[in-house]
């Protein structure tokens, strides 16, 4: 009984944080299901792929793999490149996911952009269990995504209302989270480094190849800054 209360409380606290994702994922998931439907795949494909892969943009690319020649090594290596940004999420969540017990493997498995964003930034109330909160954020997001993908896969061809532009809900959410980070920090070094180097990398390398150089640049600059700060501290304590 006590245990159920803890879970229910965490679910109630988690749900409002996932509302933008409910809108975004149902829509994007449906887009993905319709895309698969148009390519000639049964809804079983988006169902299984959205459950097992659970990485939005990657699932669109995976559909292309399925249509091309059989080359699992290429599929694997391209996945590593496209999803490399998750490495940064993992490093950021090492502490937060600590002590979440059996929920931890699922939290890591389900760490898509959106789940990471909420779990990394949400201010979880003191009396709510953090592990269950993050678990439900991740689970709800995956339920939205899978539901959208299946709905799109089954009913794709019957849907006719003007949803053009609805996908902007995800961009808007990341902008808001970025603003929250900005408003909370005293210096805006990290924010500016992330934004500036990504723009620079996008201009130089283009849409398909900018993430890895951007990550390398961000990593290098943050490392140098950390080293110089560490140096200052060492001098001070001396």
């Amino acid at each position: 009984m006590q245990k159920d209360n803890v879970k229910l409380k965490a679910l109630k606290a988690a749900f409002p944080h996932t509302i933008p994702i409910l809108a975004g994922f149902l829509f994007l998931g449906m887009t993905y299901g319709i895309y698969m439907n148009v390519l000639g795949f049964s809804f079983i494909y988006p169902l299984i792929m959205s459950i097992t892969i659970f990485a939005g943009s990657m699932e669109f690319v995976a559909a292309e793999f399925l249509l091309g020649a059989f080359d699992p090594i290429k599929a694997f290596l391209m996945t590593l490149m496209i999803n490399a940004r998750h490495l940064f999420y993992g490093i950021s969540m090492l502490d937060k996911y600590r002590g979440t017990g059996l929920k931890k493997p699922y939290l890591i498995f389900g760490m898509c952009d959106e789940s990471f964003s909420i779990n990394c930034t949400a201010e979880i109330p003191e009396d709510v269990d953090k592990g269950w909160f993050m678990f439900f954020v991740t689970l709800l997001n995956q339920i939205y995504w899978v539901s959208g993908a299946v709905l799109g896969g089954v009913f794709g061809s019957f849907i006719h209302f003007n949803t053009e532009g609805l996908d902007f809900v995800m961009t808007a959410m990341f902008v808001v989270i970025f603003l929250e980070q900005w408003l909370k920090s005293s210096d805006h070094k990290s924010e500016l480094i992330g934004l500036g180097l990504s723009v620079l990398s996008l201009i130089i390398f283009g849409a398909d190849g900018f993430i890895i150089p951007a990550m390398a640049g961000i990593f290098a600059v943050l490392t140098l800054m950390g080293a110089s700060e560490g140096h200052k501290k060492a001098v001070k304590s001396f």
Binding site: R85, F88, S117, S190, I193, G196, A207, T223, G226
Partner: peptide
């Protein structure tokens, strides 16, 4: 300590990157 430092300073940079990622096309 270095990874802890990264865990602290990475998120704001990552969200900047994600905004650009959404606008990449």
């Amino acid at each position: 300590d270095f990874i802890k430092y990264l865990g602290r300073v990475l998120p704001p940079a990552v969200f900047g990157m994600l905004v650009i990622y959404c606008l990449r096309n």
